[in-house]
């Protein structure tokens, strides 16, 4: 159910919809092309290299390094109650990049480009409907629900 992914979801229907189910179970999945082995994050069903449509989900460690970040003070509609929030882009250990909020284990003043981070699957506790996302946390942080 990809509609579970994100506080506000703009694209509920996708060939990689199972990604959100895995995330709910505490697993971060990228994609791997069955034909040429191209591995990436975010996952994609159709291979940009060999154009094969056969893919499988591949478990990612969630380890990565901070590439860049920003603290958002002026929020778009739907996120007004979250401001200020800090967004980071990490280079993932296996392949590709990921964009997310920082989690509670990283103090604003400790954020440095190049720092090691752990991507942690999360569920919005305050929401009645299932909503999953992930955060950037200190290396070694585990997800409590798994």
């Amino acid at each position: 159910m990809f509609a579970w992914f994100g506080k506000v979801n703009f694209s509920p229907y996708t060939k990689v919809a199972e990604f959100a189910d895995h995330l709910k179970d505490g697993h971060l999945k990228g994609s791997r092309c069955r034909k040429c082995g191209y591995t990436t994050f975010p996952p994609r069903a159709d291979c940009p290299e060999c154009m094969s449509g056969e893919f499988e989900f591949k478990e990612f460690s969630g380890r990565g390094k901070l590439h860049t970040y920003t603290r958002i003070a002026a929020a778009p509609s739907g996120f007004e109650d979250e401001v200020p929030y800090t967004i980071g882009v990490v280079d993932l250990e296996e392949a590709g990049r990921l964009l997310a909020w920082f989690g509670p284990t990283v103090a604003e003043s400790d954020i440095r480009i190049g720092m090691d981070l752990q991507v942690v699957p999360r569920i919005f506790e305050e929401s009645e409907r299932i909503k999953v996302y992930y955060t950037l946390d200190k290396p070694g942080t585990t997800w409590g629900k798994t």
């Binding site: 994100g6 920003t70 002026a74 979250e82 967004i87």
Partner: peptide, 25 residues
């Protein structure tokens, strides 16, 4: 990209801010 980025409340200034931070670094 709306599937993997906008769900975290990215903004247009926010994107250029990511570039600014990387450029400064």
């Amino acid at each position: 990209e709306v599937q993997w980025e906008s769900i975290f409340g990215t903004t247009f200034p926010g994107y250029y801010a990511l570039f600014a931070q990387a450029h400064m670094h």
